[in-house]
């Protein structure tokens, strides 16, 4: 149990997907202008990433390896992710229109979120088992959502700051992200192993 906890902490804080591993930066920069948007995106990504790490694990272990087709991994995973996103969209649409309203616009964006494909590939690289894969996907997504929400709140405040002209917009956003990353360095070594 504590092993999974450590894996989670590691994925959320120590090896944060966005700030340390540089995954999912485009949505990080793109959907962090408003706190509400960021919350929605975080929620949607968490859902999809967890599910995608499960599905890609299954695809790898039950399809690609038995057929010795590992070289099709990228192709397979991206299709698996596309299907998962589509499926999620349909399920959410049917079961909870309210949730769909929140997540709907973000779901298509997630297919091209490299954090999702990234987590699938990292799981393979790290030889994670089924539960580990899911935990890692979930943790990574939580880490993504956490910094996304924090960053969105900061950007809302940033929007009103007297930033020099050349630095306005993406530039100061990236510098802020840099300082966030600097702060997250403090978590280094929190999880050993």
């Amino acid at each position: 149990m504590s092993e999974f906890l450590l894996l989670l902490v590691s994925a959320i804080l120590v090896n944060n997907f966005v700030l340390v591993k540089f995954l999912g930066l485009c949505p990080f920069m793109g959907t962090s202008k408003k706190l509400d948007t960021a919350l929605g995106m975080g929620l949607a990504t968490t859902f999809v990433m967890t599910l995608a790490s499960l599905c890609s694990y299954v695809a790898e272990q039950w399809v690609l390896i038995p057929l010795d087709l590992q070289y099709l991994r990228t192709l397979t995973f991206i299709l698996v992710i596309a299907v998962v996103v589509q499926f999620t969209e349909m399920v959410v649409h049917k079961t909870s229109p309210a949730l769909y309203r929140v997540l709907g616009i973000f779901l298509p964006l997630i297919t091209t979120n490299c954090a999702v494909l990234g987590v699938a590939l990292l799981n393979i690289n790290a030889n994670h088992g089924l539960i580990e894969s899911v935990a890692y996907g979930f943790g990574g997504a939580l880490g993504f959502s956490l910094v996304l929400v924090l960053f969105a709140a900061m950007r809302e405040r940033l929007a009103t700051a007297d930033v020099p002209k050349a630095f306005q917009g993406a530039s100061i956003g990236l510098i802020t992200a840099g300082l966030m990353s600097l702060a997250f360095m403090g978590f280094a070594g929190l999880v050993r192993g």
Partner: peptide
């Protein structure tokens, strides 16, 4: 953690949570 003292990190991490 990985550092002997953590004040600076702690303050920065709290800073970024402020908004």
């Amino acid at each position: 953690g990985g550092y002997p003292d953590g004040w600076a990190f702690a303050v920065m991490l709290a800073n970024l949570s402020v908004p």
